[in-house]
């Protein structure tokens, strides 16, 4: 179980946790002070003991005191918070750059030579800069154990970085709400020794535009469409080619169609035109321009050839 404030595994942990203790320490002091004063006054000056209120006059020095002290303290908090934040925005030049693709609803990591992974492998004690990219909506890249979080904003080149300081596996969450399966947009970062990292990298595959299965995987299709017939958010891909389906059009009409090239292409470009009965419309967005024409062809070829037996169903 590697979670929690008491567990950290990156270069930022020490300074950020220090900031937490600094602010929370002052917080707890004031919280206790205010609570104790409140209880003391309520008991000491209760009507039963203290029947006649004393109309105390304001004292300017007191007002000045409790404006000045909080002001100094909050400015100190601001300064500590700011100072310890600066390094988060300053990745070293020699950092290993990885492109992070956050999309509805999975993560993908692209290494400099085009190698693709769904788990983020990083070498120990080496700075890693993550270039955050979203093809659809806002996501948030969050590794609690590293104390980093940055929004993945479509149309913007946002980034974050870290140096992992402990071997192990840590959670990656999506922190910015992104729709139906937001809570399941999850991956892991695996911190490994450099040699192991190199051999893992060597075994990863380059993203392909001619291998249909790879295109499906690289676009996160499998997070909603299963290959084994399991019902997820969208219809399963099992036995898709040539299957007869009842679909519903946006104006609510029922139609029966056979899954062919035209239907597959339409379902990628304009997924809400014909939605299989029993599934929610308007969940999938258009992949027009994101999955290119040749990749659509590869997907179609893949479905044509994948499971001939299931076709009869």
């Amino acid at each position: 179980m590697n979670y929690g404030i008491h567990y950290g595994a990156s270069n930022f942990v020490e300074k950020i946790d220090y900031t937490f203790y600094f602010i929370l320490g002052i917080d707890i002091f004031f919280f206790i002070l205010i609570t104790i004063l409140m209880i003391y006054f309520v008991v000491r000056y209760n009507k039963k003991r203290h029947q006649k209120a004393v109309q105390v006059q304001e004292r300017t020095w007191l007002e000045v005191l409790w404006i000045t002290i909080p002001l100094i303290l909050v400015l100190a908090m601001f300064y500590v918070g700011w100072k310890n934040y600066i390094p988060l925005r300053r990745p070293p030049k020699d950092a290993l750059e990885v492109k992070v693709i956050g999309r509805m609803w999975d993560w993908q990591f692209v290494y400099p030579d085009g190698k693709v992974a769904t788990t983020l492998y990083v070498p120990l004690n080496k700075p890693v800069k993550l270039n955050l990219y979203s093809p659809d909506v806002l996501h948030g890249f969050f590794i609690p154990a590293f104390r980093i979080k940055e929004d993945v904003v479509p149309g913007k080149n946002n980034y974050t970085w870290f140096t992992a300081t402990q071997l192990g596996e840590y959670d990656i969450y999506c922190s910015a709400y992104c729709g139906m399966r937001h809570a399941y947009m999850y991956s892991k970062v695996k911190v490994v020794p450099t040699e192991e990292f190199n051999s893992i990298l060597a075994n990863l595959k380059v993203a392909s535009s001619t291998d249909g299965e790879a295109v499906l995987r690289n676009n996160g299709c499998f997070s909603c469409h299963s290959m084994d017939g399991t019902r997820l958010v969208g219809p399963s891909f099992k036995g898709l080619w040539g299957a007869k389906k009842t679909v519903i059009t946006p104006d609510g009409k029922k139609e029966t169609i056979v899954v062919d090239e035209k239907y597959l292409e339409e379902s990628i470009i304009d997924p809400n035109a014909k939605v299989e009965e029993g599934f929610m419309p308007n969940v999938m967005r258009s992949y027009k321009g994101i999955i290119k024409d040749e990749e659509i062809k590869a997907i179609i070829e893949y479905f044509k050839n994948s499971d001939g037996e299931a076709k009869k169903e």
Partner: peptide
């Protein structure tokens, strides 16, 4: 006063940049 104080003091954790990054969202 009790609850608002807790709310306000935890707001300071959110206002500081270094800690906000961890607890935001």
């Amino acid at each position: 006063i009790f609850l608002f104080t807790i709310g306000g003091l935890t707001g300071l954790v959110l206002g500081a940049l270094a800690t906000n990054v961890h607890v935001h969202d």
